[in-house]
Write a protein that binds this DNA or RNA. Structure first.
Length: 637
RNA sequence: GCCACCUUAGCUCAGUUGGCCAGAGCAGGGGUUUUGUAAACCUCAGGUCGUCAGUUCGAAUCUGACAGGUGGCUCCA
């Protein structure tokens, strides 16, 4: 007899009773998918062998969903082995909203095949077969998977230490290895869908063999599955590439892959963002400079870039000289720093540049504005003494947060990357600088994650990332410490003792790539940019020919008052014009008929269809000014 | 770069198992209409079906190479 506390009840149980039996015997209407016995996550089939406190995991719980997804991956394995018996199973973990399974198969699986795999999965799941957990020794696991010719599972078993528990799960004739827990039958597995297929590599290393990865999603209810698929559809509508075309912001074409052709509207947004950053630079004592696009390769050799990143550098030659198109601005900035002798009293010295850099990124990595081959960085380099690092970093973190907030971003992912295996500089310097970054982060009162070993070869860094509409994470801001390049490129200053020493260099970008940032902005707002970022504020439309002159005058007047205005005097019905400009997401639409001319007022509505009524021009101007000034996301106050 | 898929008019898309001059809507031109808050009407024009080869009596449709793109993987100073 064991005493079990479960669902606020204390129950005495017989020996050899599973959690599943216990629940069935004592409760109706609950169908947990797993349980925690004294805090340890277990299958429902787990036998209770001591006095316990049991917590039930339901399918709608986060952990419950994960179990459903994990089991769904197994059922995928079950199906794929029936359809393609020679397939070797690799790994099938859960991810946000679903799971994937990496497989090695001679046949190449295409998206068209997913339907048949999925329908077999459905058929298997419908059988409500029992999923049986078996705890095995390492030896037994090896013999099971050797017999099944699961080469990759065997490799995985090798990595398991002897004192770890190995469990295998029987899905009829299919066997998979997993820590668990899993569903005890396919009964709870009804709402799933195979989504897409892609290549992947064994152990994530592109030198290893190519695997095929199938992605799926799985949910506890039909509604949740539907809602998820609907959410994806909605997210796709926010795609900056689609909106960019619809709103006439930019385009790409194959003669210049990965490089943007900015149109008038898009370039206006770009420049609003750029001007905003410029005003910040002035307030923080940056010197705004500009350095050449093309520099002799010898400089890139000296800086270390050529050895490390030659694949990504575009090069040109002229008159027997070899040049590189700059992939970053830092060597150029050091050349500016090196002009004239610097004293410790000059530091910190901050050089900023909206540097246009070219990087020959692999074709498969290009992605709209987010990953391109030519982009503009809001790049700056702070030359300072070691003692100034922490304070400068603190200022930067604060500024980055402040600027992101003004654009309406709040969910920022922050990562500290520490020393990589291949690096330059002494351990002492790395200790100190990592410590300085940590201290600055902690005192900034923000959440951050450690990304061990992912720093640059010349120093540790802090990265700031935002998500796009499909939750893909893109890095924007970065703060990187560099102890190498100043020395390599002979930068120095005279310290208090009269000695020449190398300054510390802080590479930092706030928005990162302006192109990427504009892409993120478009997706965040689905094209409905806040007023202050809108390429056009207002369209002035006439009802008929009578008001033509008045409209032209009014539009000019608004422009002169700092409100970006265009007239629309076409011979079209007013509803036609309204529809068109609404779809172009122009924030304000002004309608001028005889009545408005008469009273010298405007009739105003917003792109979202709100009627703001008739008002005086001055009142409208004041309203726009206030909203632009406050960087408001709404269109009325 | 790797794996899978996609590429038809300015845009969004049809085009059945290869078969008469390749279709539609929107956009564009020309007309009519002078219009009151999300699409007026008529009419005209527009495409070597991504490129280049091949198979075939015949290719948008089949095959191959290349280019660009999409989704991932790897990478991302």
């Amino acid at each position: 007899m064991y005493k079990v506390t479960i669902e606020n009840k204390v129950i005495e149980t017989d020996e050899n009773l599973s959690v599943d039996d216990l629940v069935k015997n004592n409760f109706t209407n609950i169908k947990p998918v797993a349980a925690k016995i004294n805090g340890a996550l277990v299958d429902m089939s787990e036998i209770i062998n001591k006095d316990s406190s049991i917590e039930l995991i339901n399918s709608s719980d986060e952990q419950g969903l994960e179990i459903i997804r994990h089991t769904c991956a197994h059922v995928f394995g079950h199906a794929i082995k029936q359809l393609y018996p020679d397939t070797k199973m690799v790994i099938g973990p859960t991810i946000d909203n679903g799971f994937y399974y990496d497989i090695y198969a001679k046949e190449s699986i295409s998206e068209k095949d997913l339907a048949s795999i999925e329908s077999l999965m459905k058929k298997l799941a419908k059988k409500n077969y029992k999923i049986i957990r078996e705890v095995v020794t390492k030896k037994r696991a090896q013999s099971v998977f050797r017999e099944r010719k699961e080469d990759y599972k065997l490799k995985l078993i090798e990595d398991i230490t002897d004192n770890e528990v190995i469990a295998i799960y029987h899905h009829e004739e299919y066997i998979d290895m997993c820590r668990g827990p899993h569903l005890t039958s396919t009964r709870e597995l009804n709402y799933f869908k195979l989504m897409k297929i892609s290549g992947s590599y064994w152990k994530g290393d592109s030198n290893n063999e190519q695997l095929q990865r199938i992605y799926g999603t799985a949910w506890d209810t039909k509604d949740n599955l539907k809602a998820y698929l609907h959410k994806l559809e909605e997210a796709e509508k926010r795609d900056h590439r689609k909106i960019g075309q619809k709103l006439d912001l930019f385009h790409f074409q194959e003669e210049s892959p990965g490089m943007v052709f900015w149109h008038d509207n898009g370039w206006k947004i770009f420049n609003i963002v750029k001007d905003f950053i410029t005003s910040y630079l002035r307030n923080y004592n940056y010197k705004i400079i500009n350095t050449p696009q093309i520099l002799d390769k010898s400089l890139w050799k000296k800086s270390g870039h050529l050895d490390k990143f030659s694949d990504l550098i575009f090069d040109v030659s002229s008159e027997n000289k070899e040049y590189a198109i700059k992939p970053m601005s830092c060597p150029g900035h050091i050349q500016v720093y090196n002009q004239g002798l610097k004293s410790y009293r000059d530091l910190p010295l901050k050089f900023a540049e909206f540097g246009i850099v070219h990087r020959n990124e692999p074709s498969g990595t290009l992605h709209g504005l987010m990953r391109i081959r030519a982009f503009t960085q809001d790049d700056a380099h702070i030359f300072c003494t070691p003692g100034q690092i922490e304070n400068e970093i603190k200022i930067l973190i604060k500024t980055i947060y402040d600027i992101y907030k003004q654009f309406g971003f709040h969910e920022i992912k922050v990562e500290l990357s520490t020393r990589p295996e291949k690096r330059v500089g002494s351990e002492e310097i790395w200790d100190k600088s990592e410590d300085a970054l940590k201290k600055a982060l902690d005192s900034s009162n923000i959440e951050w994650q450690l990304n061990n070993g992912d720093g640059a070869f010349y120093g540790p860094k802090i990265d700031f990332s935002l998500k796009d509409s499909l939750e893909r994470v893109w890095q924007l801001g970065t703060i990187q410490l560099d102890f190498s390049m100043p020395t390599r490129l002979n930068a120095n200053y005279v310290d208090e003792n009269g000695d020449k020493v190398a300054p510390v260099m802080i590479h930092r970008a706030i928005l990162g790539s302006l192109e990427r940032f504009v892409g993120i902005l478009i997706e965040e707002y689905a094209g409905d940019l806040p007023l202050w970022l809108s390429p056009t504020h207002v369209v002035v439309m006439n009802i008929s020919e009578n008001q033509e002159v008045h409209c032209q005058k009014l539009s000019k007047k608004l422009n002169n008052m700092g409100i970006i205005s265009i007239p629309d005097l076409r011979n079209e019905k007013i509803s036609y014009k309204i529809r068109e400009h609404s779809m172009k997401r122009v924030p304000y639409l002004v309608v001028i008929g005889d009545k408005e001319v008469e009273s010298n007022q405007i009739s105003l509505r917003t792109r979202t269809g709100d009627d703001l009524g008739v008002m005086d021009v001055d009142k409208f101007v004041k309203m726009v000014e206030t909203l632009v000034e406050s960087k408001s996301v709404v269109l009325k106050n």
